[in-house]
Computed example of a mutant assay.
Amino acid sequence: MSNSHAVGDSKVPETIQDKAPKGLEESLPNAVHDTGADTGRKSHAVKDAAGNTDSKVPEALQKAVPEKLEKVLPDSIHNTGGK
């Protein structure tokens, strides 16, 4: 029996899903590990008119980390409109 809280597709290996706490699973973006939870997480990268960014950080990671971590990255790597 699986202890995973996923309700949809997941890129997380099942052995890790089974051992991860529910809170950790729900903090991942649904695109990576869909638990059906609305994490409220979003990227804080500056977007152009078409909604694209020039960030070198993968979007799933942008959405998974706290905003303050995004903002400490240099704008040349991940432009949040800060510095």
Rank of each mutant, 00 (worst) to 15 (best):
M1I: 14
S4K: 02
S4H: 13
A6W: 07
V7P: 08
G8T: 05
G8M: 03
S10F: 13
K11G: 13
V12D: 01
P13S: 15
I16P: 01
D18Y: 12
D18G: 07
K19E: 14
K19T: 14
A20M: 15
P21A: 06
P21Y: 08
G23M: 13
G23S: 12
L24Q: 05
E26I: 05
E26K: 08
S27M: 12
L28V: 07
A31G: 04
V32P: 03
T35P: 11
T35H: 13
G36T: 05
D38H: 10
T39N: 15
T39L: 13
T39M: 10
K42A: 11
H44G: 06
A45G: 04
A45F: 08
V46M: 01
V46H: 00
A50P: 10
T53Y: 08
D54S: 03
K56S: 10
K56L: 11
P58E: 14
E59W: 12
E59Q: 13
A60W: 11
L61P: 00
Q62F: 04
Q62L: 10
Q62N: 09
Q62H: 00
K63M: 02
E67R: 03
E70W: 00
V72D: 12
V72W: 06
L73T: 02
L73F: 14
P74N: 10
D75Q: 15
D75W: 01
S76L: 13
I77S: 12
I77K: 03
I77W: 04
H78E: 03
H78K: 06
H78T: 01
N79M: 00
N79K: 06
G81W: 00
G81P: 01
G82D: 13
G82P: 08
G82T: 14
K83N: 13
